[in-house]
Amino acid sequence: MPQYFSRSANSFARFTILGAVCVLVAVCWLGYLIVRSPYEMMQNVPREQPVPFSHEHHVGGLGIDCRYCHTTVEKSSFANIPATKICMNCHSQMWATSPMLEPVRESYRTGKSIEWTRVNDLPEFVYFDHSIHVNHGVGCATCHGRVDKMPLTWQAAPLTMEWCLNCHRHPERYVRPRDQVFSMDYTPPPNQIALGKRLVSEYHIQSLTSCSTCHR
């Protein structure tokens, strides 16, 4: 009976087994990369909003402090989306007939909320608290990026758990003096690690990495 397969077919068979394993690993790896990609995280994607609100104009151009609108950021887990009344402090007089601001005026007239699209959306099994971060030297821009340069708001950070843990493991790389927390153009000094270590002990910052810190 003639041989159907040459001797090299043995090696070929072995390679295909190896190849199948490789392909399987590659597919899983690819899926992992896609799930965590900026695309899937919607990072750097400006969201459409009922009113095209520009942080660039209000923060960068006019120099309005974050806390003028996000009033509860220093004492609450939630940074607060400003009430329509806060918009109207100025916009009852400025651009008071602009069609772009009609949803704001309508909300003020009727008491109906403006339905903003959430930009930084954490999964709901994560319990994040703004106040503790802001009061311990984590700058707004550290997580939210240069909001003063965003004509429409986008999510600047990946918001993966790995990204959170990166800072929770090494807070000294990111903390800044408390009086610089709300500054948009703060740049870390060349001796950031030394400064960071000093601030970490001064502000009693703990490197909290247990699961229940964020997942409760």
């Binding site: 006019l62 309005i64 100025c90």
Partner: peptide, 25 residues
Amino acid sequence: FNIFCSPCHGRTGDGNGMVAQRGVK
């Protein structure tokens, strides 16, 4: 004051804050 008042009243209180310069009374 610098957070809530200075946009209109200015940092020194003389009334020439950025928002006042852009058109509020």
